[in-house]
Design a protein around this nucleic acid. Structure first.
Lengths: 194, 194
DNA sequence: GGATAACATGAGCTACGATTCCGCTTAAGG
DNA sequence: CCTTAAGCGGAATCGTAGCTCATGTTATCC
């Protein structure tokens, strides 16, 4: 979990910049095109040497892990916004957050891949954020339940579950797979029966 | 597509047996435990040398491909049964087939993995079966539509899409992910609104 | 400016897993 | 039985990708 309370001495300016360059390169490379992409490519793309990558991240999984962590932070921001939005009906607030997060995931193959075939090692880096995600989801689910707008048997951990399901079908438009329809299907299934 | 019309000369008895041993070993090894498992392990498990594996399958993907092909054949059998079952209501026939296929997939991590992160190469081996799957799905979807039991905007290609989604959430019971509930959620979403 | 601790570099090391190759074995036909 | 071609074994090869390290560079502080 990074460094609690900035105990660490501030990085040298060039080091901080390189760190960002590396993350950006990794996002671009893993995010859109190539499924895997090796460290050497990330380094080249960032305009630094491989050694520099390893100075900032102990190993490949740490780099991937940081990407996942960032993604969760964004996910959580969406949920937080939904929680703070008093104007929307509880179910719609939840649904909106899911739609927004799904849309973001659609353009980030890297994290999707990481979220799926989830190597524990990678996930470990985002443990705190993952827990926060569940906590926020619980709030939204609870409200929707109380408003009677969400099936009784829908639980907070179903939120990441269905998100995972929808994400797994992204990027296959050529087979006629439209994740937007998939998501709407799931959202309908979440409504109370009768 | 194997050999059209058995044009090939019959294999030697031991060769045929070994081929089956190899497939069985691959199913067991990739199917349940280990995520990957290398050829050497499959060979050892089958009680043959690596060379023998390569005599029967040009490369690893061909072996995986055969596994996927077998799985699709079973999937298709379920759909076929649903089509032939006159007693069930159209939607229930479709839903039943999905439930059965999902249950089978749940105990076959190998194919699930292959179906997901779908390397085209692996899939190519099951092209014919994949098309047959869609053809059968179309029949069931068409019937359910005509009976007014399925949302108008649900199309045949949504069948593999939602299956993929549900499969992607299997094997994470420890996180509270129950694919059965996930599937039921999706099935509810498939029903006509109103 | 100069000292120095951080930081960067990238050739090369290492591990690992897919695939090959060739001498040996054996099923199957006569 | 004997021949022989199909089949087998598994050590050795090859390619790849993660990672290390000895050497060179530079931000930062005085």
């Amino acid at each position: 979990m990074t460094d609690l309370l900035e105990t660490a001495k501030p990085m040298r300016a060039d080091a901080r910049r390189n760190r960002e360059l590396i993350l950006a390169a990794a996002r671009e490379l893993l995010g859109s095109e190539k499924a895997d992409a090796q460290i050497d490519e990330v380094a080249a793309r960032a305009g630094v040497g491989v050694g520099t990558v390893y100075r900032h991240f102990p190993d490949k999984e740490a780099l991937l892990g940081e990407l996942v962590r960032e993604r969760f932070i964004r996910f959580n921001a969406r949920l937080q916004e939904a929680i703070e939005d008093e104007s929307a009906a509880p179910f719609d607030a939840l649904a909106g957050a899911l739609r927004r997060n799904a849309a973001e995931s659609a353009s980030d193959a890297a994290t999707r891949r990481a979220l799926m075939s989830g190597s524990e090692r990678v996930f470990a880096h985002a443990e705190a954020e993952k827990e926060e995600f569940l906590r926020l989801a619980e709030v939204l689910v609870g409200r929707a339940h109380r408003a009677g707008e969400l099936r009784e048997d829908f639980v907070a951990s179903d939120v990441p579950m269905v998100m995972c399901g929808v994400c797994s079908t992204m990027g296959k438009r050529d087979a006629g797979w439209e994740w937007e329809r998939h998501l709407e299907l799931v959202l309908r299934g979440m409504r109370p029966s009768g």
